[in-house]
Design a binder for these strands. Structure first.
Lengths: 342, 342
DNA sequence: AATTTTAACGAAAACGTTTTCGATAATACC
DNA sequence: GGTATTATCGAAAACGTTTTCGTTAAAATT
């Protein structure tokens, strides 16, 4: 019943614990004969090293922490999948926590993970995170931290992102290219860097193409679980206030889908009367009617890259080498579907 | 730079490590005065107990493992959220692994978690898991195991499920109630208990209502990432083989949505010519057109309950009490939408 | 005043591993 | 034959905590 320990193997073979440990780790100063004996007995007894003891001794847990704003979310669950897949390859486990877009929770969870002594942390920030001390604390404590998607530019650490500004520019340019003259924008919350960047990309595209920027055409929507309803609400507002709008670039697919449903209800034809581009390429977007043009955001790859970078930094720290922070920018792609077919 | 230990506090206060430890854990045999001193110094030094040492000493990790077939999945990500939320309340962390519906991977991952010495495991089985030794091994090693959704009836442990047979019965009965006479069934893989049960519920509903069961109306679809395409494929088959079918009960919403898209393409009117009921109530189902009638499956609650039960069993084991396995059956609900509106 | 009880503390073992450093014996070298 | 080298092993410390059990001194009891 009790798990097998090194001591048991040592006792049965009448050798020391030291030698058993060395044999199993293939140290050069153990004779081939004893190595063979130890290995055989270990496997027949089904010996598994006690992780708790190993952790204490080596001071690492082979576990990393992941904090994300929401789990039930097409993009984020893809990131999770990417991180777990890559971590598994390197023998790492992933502890996942959900910040629920709350700064306070995020702080607590960083604390939890630090107490748990994970080997590193990957995080996408909550919408209302404005203070970053809890994050810089992680870094200055010597633990690697990698941010993805919703990052804080000011924090000095590695980041895996897309070029939100460029992607938004492309999306808006696409609307212009198909003939839209008056283009609205449903943006995300005010704080997150990516929603700021997407807004800036939108504005620059207008500017570069000789279209005046009109602030009243920008609607804010807190992208939480109510995204769909937010999209509907903003659409109703837009229909009241700006009948002349013929295109919208929307921060997130789910909001865009809410918008589409509302336009359909109001009898506004898509894309004839109004063209729509979303963001993220949720699975749904390809199967609704009209299908939604959007920006493809590589969630799985983002997760993979985030872990890869974290892994590198963990290794560097182990070897006491300096770590150089990287900013990894992944490619996005505009996917044209019915909502912008001319 | 080095983390603070009990020894440091002890040295600074000129007392023993024992007393410091006891003071922090509020043992009765430490004077109020020293307790206060210790606590104050501990907080100013920002002392955090070394989890590795605590784990080794107490032989528990306050961490549980979770194995699910797929992460990017509306139902499962809801379950994850439920488990994490409940675990956090009790101070537990959750390590998540994805079996990818593969028995081999599932085995490896159970091994990983056991080596990591998690305090318990929650699992939803892979589709092709037929042998259960890796699971009974967990239980006989003294670690609690809770299964949810895709369970193995034969394994003696706690389970959190819905009454799939009853829910399927209800879904099929609903189709009969709105006048369907010839009802097909797109079922899931052959092995998983829940896809068997849903099939049985479907068949019983037919039988109870005097409709002959016709095996040729049952289509199998492996519900992996290609669910949507599977739904389309089966629908094309159905249209070729059985023009007279006027209702379908489909194992999963995503497949049903694939079916709907194919019917629309073929110009078949829903629900007039064919009525459809799905399963799981994916978010998408409410926003597509026509919206999809379905069975609501309480993912979040399922996760919560699964952890609650696991937690109970962990406590029992700690106290050396016998654990009694429970089968928790959660309520489902038929949600009627446009795809079955008469 | 003698005894018992209580309060407060600490020594030490234990958890299971890893790794450093010596020790011994066998072999090689001159 | 003496020295240097190599091969093989083990003792012991260390990681940081928890908990048992013993010790001492003070307080309470007779």
């Amino acid at each position: 019943m009790k798990p097998v320990t090194l001591r048991e193997i040592a006792d049965q073979l009448n050798i020391s614990i030291t030698t058993v440990s060395k044999a199993l780790k293939d140290y050069p100063d153990v004779s081939p004969k004893t190595k063979a004996q130890v290995r055989e007995l270990a496997s027949t007894l089904n010996y598994k090293p006690n992780t708790f003891a190993v952790n204490l001794r080596t001071n690492e847990s082979k576990t990393i922490g992941l904090i994300i704003p929401v789990i039930v979310h097409h993009f984020f669950s893809n990131v999770i999948k990417g991180i777990i897949a890559q971590a598994e390859k390197k023998g790492y486990l992933v502890v996942i926590l959900q910040s629920n877009e709350s700064y306070e929770l995020e702080k607590k969870q960083i604390d939890l993970l630090m107490n748990q002594r994970v080997d590193g942390i990957i995080i996408s920030l909550a919408n209302d995170t404005v203070d970053f001390k809890h994050l810089t604390d992680v870094i200055s404590s010597g633990k690697p931290l990698v941010m993805f998607d919703k990052i804080a530019k000011i924090v000095n650490c590695s980041k895996v992102i897309i070029d939100d500004r460029k992607a938004a520019y492309e999306a808006t340019k696409h609307l212009i290219d198909i003939g839209c003259k008056r283009i609205a924008h449903f943006r995300g919350s005010l704080l997150p860097q990516n929603s700021i960047d997407r807004f800036l990309g939108y504005r620059k595209a207008l500017f570069d193409n000789g279209i005046a920027y009109d602030p009243s055409l920008v609607y804010i929507c807190e992208c939480d679980e109510k995204s769909f309803e937010e999209g509907q609400k903003n659409t109703r507002l837009l229909l009241e206030q700006h009948k002349d709008v013929d295109g919208i670039f929307i921060n997130t697919d789910l909001v865009a889908i809410g918008a589409i449903s509302e336009f359909k209800k109001a009898g506004v034809k898509i894309p004839e009367e109004i063209a729509i581009v979303g963001f993220s390429n949720w699975f749904v977007s390809s199967i609704i009617s009209p299908s939604l043009s959007t920006i493809k955001q590589p969630g799985f790859k983002m997760g993979k890259e985030a872990f890869k970078q974290l892994y590198k930094e963990i290794q560097s720290i182990k070897k006491n080498e300096p770590i150089d922070f990287k900013q990894i920018v992944l490619k996005t792609k505009l996917i044209q579907r019915e909502s912008t077919k001319i």
